[in-house]
Write a protein that binds this DNA or RNA. Structure first.
Lengths: 222, 222
DNA sequence: AATAAATCGTGTCAAGTTTACACTATCCAC
DNA sequence: GTGGATAGTGTAAACTTGACACGATTTATT
């Protein structure tokens, strides 16, 4: 691989940032200013800088939009249809980031008209091929929830088992039996009690748990 | 995504081509002529051509090396460490191809010193970051064998259940119970009998089966 | 102080799935 | 027709999954 006719390709990174909030799986989208996409929504992204990897660029974008620095971030896929950007050949390496909806402060910049969480079941019209990218990202997230422990990245450090169950129900799009769910999660030793209680609302307080591992592992959850 | 300081990035595709042969999982590697990698081995790859997608490039490379046109091919991941190629910034989108060892004719070209199947457990020294790419490819293949029907792509159209079992044993690196394996594969309705017999060697001939689907599906095989 | 409203936390049984395990059948070579 | 090689087949025990309901604890209301 070395010779090559001149290529006029630019390399970008896009970040599909997910959270769970208000009972729905949400993706962070920005509303664009630039023509020819003015007013359309898209996953945040940008060209990579000199000597920067796409992963570093994705982290930079994530941090710029949310202030989050330590989220779970993984490469999703690379999208390289020559016509995906009307302005020229831009190849995008897409990443998926999972953040806890607590502690996220959406940051609007000069660059965009608006920044918002959108429920993935009711997305607006998207620029580029981002509809496809989002679709791939959602199905990857669903799959990973079933066979890994990534759910920790969508929750605060301490959480109740009901909150964890809710994350699963929302993303998988089906209800889950409470007793079976708790048995599974506890038997797998994914989580451990912190000894503290939640105490929110006029009802019995729930025990707060934390994940033993805040690093992704392959585990047959569901 | 539109403005951007000048990037000097070239885009390449690499193909990790697997087959099962002589009782081992094998990867097709080429031996390089070009400095500074002369004599080293690598997965075949190349720069993408004008208006070509990386997937098309991967198919072109696969066909060039093996003559195969209809193999299972899927995107693996993108490798973009700025130092992965000593000669400049080359970002590579890696693909995994699975071929049946029958009907493959290795084609050596001017471009390379040699082309060979190498057992993945005894790889030679590899150029670039291809050691890492191969490692990711092998683990992806192992995972996919367990939860999809991709095994068809490693076998000829007609095969015996023992051959299918051998593919699983070789790739997963463990033995599998014959009766349980056959029950699983038949219950899942992955394969159906063709009515023909194999008749090779001094022993009872085996029934030949074919896959119902020669398209990847998610199925809990093992 | 009693009651209502809300969510937490817990066990069992049946059904289904997975694992372990061994012998007869069929073909070819001699 | 005997020996060597691989094909093909069933069952029982262990384990996992799925279905299912009610008392416990807290706060707000009266």
């Amino acid at each position: 691989m070395g010779d090559a006719s001149e290529q006029h390709i630019k390399l970008a990174a896009d970040a599909v940032i997910f959270t769970v909030r208000d009972g729905a799986l949400m993706a962070l989208l920005i509303q664009m200013k630039k023509t020819p996409y003015t007013g359309m929504w898209a996953a945040p992204g940008g060209m990579i800088e000199q000597n920067e990897t796409t992963e570093t660029a994705a982290r930079r974008i994530l941090n710029m939009q949310t202030g989050v620095t330590d989220a779970h971030l993984e490469q999703l896929a690379t999208f390289d249809d020559p016509k995906r950007d009307r302005l020229g050949r831009v190849v995008s390496v897409a990443y998926v980031a999972l953040v806890s909806s607590e502690h996220v402060e959406l940051k609007t910049t000069e660059k965009y008209q608006d920044v918002r969480w959108w429920p993935v079941r009711k997305l607006p019209a998207l620029a580029y091929d981002h509809k496809g990218i989002l679709a791939v990202a959602v199905s990857r997230l669903r799959a990973k929830l079933e066979y890994t422990n990534v759910a920790w990245s969508l929750l605060p450090k301490k959480f109740t088992l009901s909150q964890l169950q809710e994350v699963y129900e929302i993303i998988l799009g089906r209800t889950v039996d409470k007793r079976n769910f708790r048995r599974k999660v506890l038997d797998l030793k994914l989580v451990e009690p912190t000894g503290k209680k939640s105490a929110r609302g006029a009802h019995r307080p729930a025990e707060l748990f934390k994940f033993k591992q805040r690093k992704m592992e392959y585990v047959d959850v569901m």
